[in-house]
Design a protein around this nucleic acid. Structure first.
Lengths: 155, 155
DNA sequence: TGTCAATAATTAACACGTTAAGCAAAACCT
DNA sequence: AGGTTTTGCTTAACGTGTTAATTATTGACA
């Protein structure tokens, strides 16, 4: 009965709507725990995703970065302008292809990662402790299964 | 091996990050299927959520509506201005409390619901057929479990 | 009853989400 | 090589997400 108080606002006919809403709510509750920390460090959730990808994959181009960080190219274009002005990243035309932009972390960008990453991990651990490690692994597994099913559906 | 091609972009250290990202990706894949239909009818995903809540709960106020539709009050404030200009909803000061705004569907708002709801259901059914009804129910159950765990954590 | 605190909603400011359109470099082709 | 198509990225326009500040009304209570 832990969720009895939610039921009033939650009851909306079809399962159609339930899955998107359920995903939205859980995501929000999870991100709620990360946001204050990211804000203290002056980065948004999306900027943090981009920086993390760059930490693991230097000299990636815009398209691949957008895909890896789950952002649309226009959002990434706007964002990288700001990140470069703040000297957190460095951009350059790609070697063999004049259309591509190659991105990497600056030293201060890398320093930011070093500062924030442990705090991020700590929050994740808290969440695992709260929800249960198995619950979460299980949920992630199912999410991946559903994702695969949706991606391989066109056939 | 259905997701082998994703692995490159997906491998980013901790599970910390995995849950938010997994939720984001699934939600995006799901919404991808609804968006073109909603766009044909001239409403955004969020507007559709609001209209649906109003269809089920007339004379609800802003705060309760925001909660039920999972929007923040400022987003809802902006949105209702537009929806009222388009004559899809009607707003009025609440009876006993001059601070509250009471909202309800107009007749054309209700007509829109009648037109769109079946198409929405059809898409949901397609998704169920693609992914498997049990998979989806199972996933929703787990999402609710995790949500409860996160909500009852403060104690 | 008049002041003060709490609540409901809005506005403001900035960043991202989404679609469509535009531009420059590359690949394709014959 | 010259013309076309494709690709990578950007810009534009509009709507939403998020936090902080503001306004109006209500509630508390000395």
């Amino acid at each position: 009965m832990s969720n009895a108080s939610q039921k009033d606002a939650t009851r909306l006919s079809t399962t159609a709507r339930s899955l998107p809403i359920a995903l939205l709510r859980v995501r929000e509750k999870v991100m709620e725990r990360f946001r204050p920390m990211l804000q203290r460090h002056g980065v948004t959730e999306q900027q943090w995703r981009v920086l993390r990808v760059l930490a693991e994959t230097p000299d990636i181009d815009m398209s691949a970065l957008a895909k890896a960080a789950n952002l649309l190219p226009p959002s990434l274009s706007r964002m990288t302008r700001g990140l470069e002005e703040r000297r957190l990243i460095i951009t350059a035309r790609a070697a063999g292809d004049g259309r591509r932009t190659s991105l990497r972390l600056s030293e201060s960008g890398a320093a930011l990662i070093t500062k924030v990453a442990p705090e991020s991990s700590a929050i994740s651990s808290e969440i695992e402790a709260t929800v249960g490690r198995d619950q979460i692994q299980n949920l992630i597994d199912q999410l991946e299964t559903v994702l695969d099913a949706l991606e391989n559906a066109k056939a």
